[in-house]
């Protein structure tokens, strides 16, 4: 695959990754494999692209006070442990049924969110004591809706273990974990879509770092393919982060839904092809 083409694909991956809070794997993996790059070399690239996109997009988001640092501190712990556990069992696990399972979860979540697409996000009426103790509340100025939005997260006791599962999936399959991270914050913890997407952008950075260390040890990271990703993905991520800030919560969720559907179909396809 030519470095020039990979550079342009990385810009698109950075843009989609920053807008969806998922990293760039959803674009990079199918393009790389279609161009003849072995999936075992494509997945480490996708993992490192997650670090690139996380660093680039999150630097803009945190200055606008969009992600919640307390939520990320709590969820990162579970994400890292899950990612390490997933990467450790990846060698012995049969990944084919997992591609079907996670593809199915993503597509069914997509359908639930699609049904709720006309509903406005509402602040959680009652916050449980555990989430309150962890300080899962905050506010941000929404440039899309032109008002300050205050929110309260809940069900932290469910969110943590579920994020552990997302981390396991990310470590095992190299994809899908970041999408679940957004879904769990949105659907289980009741955070506004823009807060979920941007907090996920922070979490995927450390989640990917845990996985990247494993791939570095295995000698699967190729600088020739990585250089265009490092130079291209930040360009797309910066454009994406500027766009997302101006979106309304409803539109941000619609963008996420479109990428989620693409990712769900991609995972089912991986299962059908029997990619190990």
């Amino acid at each position: 695959m030519s470095e020039g083409l990979l550079f342009f694909v990385s810009i698109v991956a950075g843009l989609i990754g920053a807008l969806s809070g998922m990293g760039g794997g959803v674009i990079l993996i199918p393009v790389l494999t279609a161009c003849g790059v072995d999936i075992k070399r494509a997945i480490p690239l996708s993992v490192i692209s997650m670090i690139v996109i996380s660093n680039s997009a999150a630097s803009g988001y945190v200055r606008r006070h969009l992600p919640n640092l307390k939520v990320s501190a709590f969820l990162e712990l579970f994400a890292i442990l899950g990612s390490v556990a997933g990467a450790s069992i990846a060698v012995v696990a049969n990944r084919r049924p997992l591609f079907f399972l996670s593809g199915g979860i993503l597509l069914s979540s997509c359908m639930i969110l699609w049904k709720q697409r006309r509903e406005m996000w509402k602040v959680t009426p009652d916050q449980d004591a555990f989430s309150h103790q962890l300080g899962f509340e905050g506010s941000y100025y929404d440039y899309g809706e032109k008002k300050t939005i205050a929110y309260r997260g809940h069900h932290a006791y469910l969110g943590g273990p579920l994020i552990f599962g997302a981390g396991v999936l990310s470590g095992l399959l190299g994809m899908g974990g970041s999408a679940l991270t957004v879904l769990i914050q949105d659907m289980v913890m009741g955070l506004p879509p823009k807060v979920s997407l941007t907090t996920s952008n922070l979490i995927i950075g450390v989640m990917a770092l845990a996985g990247a260390s494993v791939y570095l040890e295995a000698g699967l990271i190729e600088p020739r393919l990585l250089v265009p990703v490092i130079l291209g993905a930040p360009v797309g991520a910066l454009i994406g982060s500027k766009l997302l800030v101006g979106f309304t919560n409803r539109f941000a969720r619609l963008v996420f839904l479109s990428v989620l559907m693409l990712l769900g179909l991609e995972m089912i396809l991986h299962g059908i092809r029997g990619i190990q």
């Binding site: 490192i48 670090i51 690139v52 996380s54 660093n55 640092l69 307390k70 501190a73 709590f74 990162e76 103790q133 962890l134 300080g135 922070l202 950075g205 450390v206 770092l209 990247a212 260390s213 990271i221 600088p223 990585l226 490092i230």
Partner: peptide, 28 residues
């Protein structure tokens, strides 16, 4: 590439110092 990989790690260390020294939030 090494600095790229270390950046999220440094960000976590900065958060640790913030929660410990500024906000004094022991849970975080």
């Amino acid at each position: 590439i090494a600095i790229l990989m270390l950046t999220p790690y440094v960000r976590l260390i900065a958060s640790l110092f913030y929660f410990a020294c500024v906000e004094k939030s022991w849970k975080q």
